[in-house]
């Protein structure tokens, strides 16, 4: 088990290195003078010289990558000349808010998807199952912003139940002080994530239902409720754990769009704004962080899977 965890961590390190390599190459794909495009059109020669020195731009490419990695490891994600502040401090302020948004959505979507999936599997090919599948289907086929628009139209414009904008407080605590403003962003992201989970959960449960051990349990006279609880749920849940890892990119992308639509201040919105103003350090910083979070999420999910499933002995 320890061996597996160690090896899986080693793998994650390799992938994280890959992610940093990609961002490094993105940086160097910038057109024209690198320093000038990073700092902006009003860069002074002095600034450019400092920048070139800091990133070792005159040295060979591999050394530049090494410098880039070194900076990252020391928590230096670059400096936003546009915002006049280090990217690290910017993200430190924004990420907790993303965590609240994404975390709430993840928990809520699982809380809906798991029971609904099991109920659908048990009542397979009946009306309720068709309705559930249909709803999941439409949600799955909607762009995130379209879902947000529909929710805003319904709950903010037609019936004034919830505000169409996220709380505009700059602090994380301030966010929680106005929970009504959180409802629509979280609901949007929850539905998007739910759409991912629901199809999977249903088919995982159907697959488990077809297993021989379910029949064995029934043959001992176990009531259906207990068959579901003891045998079906647990075995289907194990496969859902890996799905959580896979769904992280979906949640992150969803966060970007939800933040844009609801003007919810977070890393996603920062990325969007940075893109509008060609603020490359912020864009690259967010990309690195997003990549690392995804890798870590997958890592945790895989280890969780190994812990839950006794069959896996590495």
């Amino acid at each position: 088990m320890t061996g597996y965890v160690l090896r899986r961590c080693g793998q994650a390190v390799v992938v994280v290195l890959g992610v940093t390599l990609v961002t490094f190459l993105m940086l160097h794909a910038l057109p024209g003078n690198l320093a000038r495009s990073i700092i902006g059109p009003r860069a002074t020669p002095q600034q450019i010289a400092t920048f070139d020195k800091q990133y070792g731009l005159s040295s060979p490419l591999w050394y530049q990558y090494w410098t880039f990695l070194d900076q990252l490891v020391h928590g230096n994600l670059g400096f936003s000349f546009h915002l006049s502040r280090p990217v690290t401090s910017l993200l430190a302020a924004e990420l907790p808010r993303d965590l609240i948004l994404g975390g709430l959505a993840l928990i809520l979507s699982l809380a809906i998807a798991i029971p609904v999936g099991v109920v659908q599997a048990v009542n397979r090919n009946r009306l309720g199952d068709y309705v559930g599948t249909g709803v999941g289907f439409v949600l799955y086929s909607m762009p995130v912003y379209a879902l947000a628009i529909v929710l805003v139209q319904l709950f903010a414009i037609t019936f004034h139940v919830f505000p169409a904008q996220a709380p505009q407080s700059s602090s994380t605590i301030g966010l929680l002080e106005h929970p009504s403003g959180l409802v629509l962003p979280v609901a949007t992201l929850t539905l998007v994530t739910y759409a991912q989970f629901s199809r999977y959960m249903r088919s995982a449960a159907i697959e488990t239902l077809a297993q021989d051990y379910i029949r064995t349990a029934q043959a001992t006279g176990l009531p259906e409720r207990l068959v579901l609880w003891r045998h079906l749920l647990r075995n289907s849940l194990i496969s859902v754990v890996t799905l959580i890892g896979v769904s992280i990119p979906v949640i992150i992308t969803g966060t970007l769009i939800v933040e844009q639509v609801f003007n919810f201040s977070g890393a996603g919105l920062e990325y969007y704004n940075a893109a509008l103003t060609n603020d490359y350090p912020v864009m690259l910083g967010v990309t690195v962080v997003v990549g690392v979070v995804t890798v870590l999420g997958n890592l945790v999910a895989d280890i969780g899977y190994a812990l839950l499933d006794p069959r896996i002995r590495y």
């Binding site: 793998q11 992938v15 890959g18 992610v19 390599l21 990609v22 993105m26 990119p249 992150i252 992308t253 970007l256 769009i257 990325y271 969007y272 893109a275 864009m283 967010v286 990309t287 997003v290 990549g291 995804t294 890798v295 997958n298």
Partner: peptide, 14 residues
Amino acid sequence: DVAFSIPLVFLFIF
């Protein structure tokens, strides 16, 4: 794995 770790929309916007 690496490509999967960077959400597409971020790459595209860049």
